[in-house]
């Protein structure tokens, strides 16, 4: 099912809304968020991206968005070392 999430990318200046399939792996959120943002952060510019939920819990990149508990309207953070 398509759901909307709010992604906050490290070093970006605003949260952005993205539409995702809740069956896709959590790990894909990082590249999708960067790709949907302005052309300032080329895709895959973050190495070993860490994706956390609002509570700061590290999410398993292999788990699906649905299984990770990211429901419609949830927010997530993408951090890690920038390449």
């Amino acid at each position: 099912m398509l759901v909307h999430l709010y992604g906050f990318l490290q070093d970006d200046f605003v949260g952005r809304q993205i539409i995702v399939d809740d069956g896709q792996p959590v790990g894909t959120l990082s590249t999708q968020l960067q790709a949907w943002g302005p052309d300032l952060y080329p895709a895959a510019s973050i190495r070993d991206a860490e994706i956390t939920n609002e509570q700061g819990t590290l999410l398993n990149p292999s788990a699906t968005i649905l299984d990770s508990g990211l429901t419609p309207g949830a927010l997530f953070h993408v951090g890690g070392a920038r390449l």
Partner: peptide
């Protein structure tokens, strides 16, 4: 230089 995904 433009943003495309809508800001939260």
């Amino acid at each position: 230089s433009l943003g495309y995904a809508l800001p939260a």
